[in-house]
Amino acid sequence: VKVFRALYTFEPRTPDELYFEEGDIIYITDMSDTNWWKGTSKGRTGLIPSNYVAEQ
């Protein structure tokens, strides 16, 4: 598990995607895809765009 911080707010387009706000901490559990990672924030899990976060 790696810890990342959201650089921007992300509004999901599908139920599989995770909503998060700029500054949120996201725990990444799967980075197997280059563009979409699986992450958890505020008790919810979903896909996030990798270019919206920076490693802490």
Rank of each mutant, 00 (worst) to 15 (best):
L7V: 07
R5N: 05
I48N: 01
E21L: 09
E11H: 15
N51P: 05
I25A: 06
D30F: 04
V1P: 12
S50G: 04
T34R: 14
M31R: 08
D30T: 03
Y27H: 08
S41H: 11
G23Y: 03
E17T: 04
F10D: 00
A6V: 03
I28W: 01
E11M: 15
E55T: 08
F4P: 02
I28Y: 01
F10W: 15
E21T: 09
W37F: 11
M31V: 06
P49T: 13
S41D: 02
W36K: 03
F20Y: 02
G23M: 03
V53P: 02
F10S: 13
T34I: 13
G43P: 01
R13M: 11
W37T: 00
I28C: 01
S50M: 07
P15F: 08
G23A: 04
P49S: 04
S32R: 11
T40N: 11
V1G: 13
Q56G: 11
S50W: 06
R5V: 15
G46N: 01
Y27Q: 07
L47C: 07
V53S: 00
A54C: 13
P49D: 05
G39Q: 00
T29Y: 15
F10G: 01
S41N: 11
F20V: 11
I26F: 02
E22W: 06
T45L: 07
E55Q: 11
T9C: 09
D33K: 06
G23C: 06
R13L: 10
A6W: 03
V3W: 12
L18M: 11
I25C: 10
T29W: 15
G39T: 01
G46E: 00
E11R: 11
D24K: 00
F10V: 07
Y52G: 07
R44A: 08
D16H: 12
K42L: 07
S50D: 02
S32C: 10
S41C: 15
Y52T: 05
D16P: 04
S41G: 04
T34G: 13
W37D: 00
G23Q: 02
T14G: 13
I28N: 00
G23I: 03
V3K: 12
G39C: 01
T40K: 08
D30M: 06
Y8E: 07
E11W: 15
D30E: 11
E17S: 05
K2N: 07
E11C: 15
T14D: 10
E11V: 15
V3C: 15
N35I: 13
E17W: 07
I28G: 00
G23R: 02
G46H: 02
V1T: 12
I25M: 09
A6H: 01
L47F: 12
F4D: 01
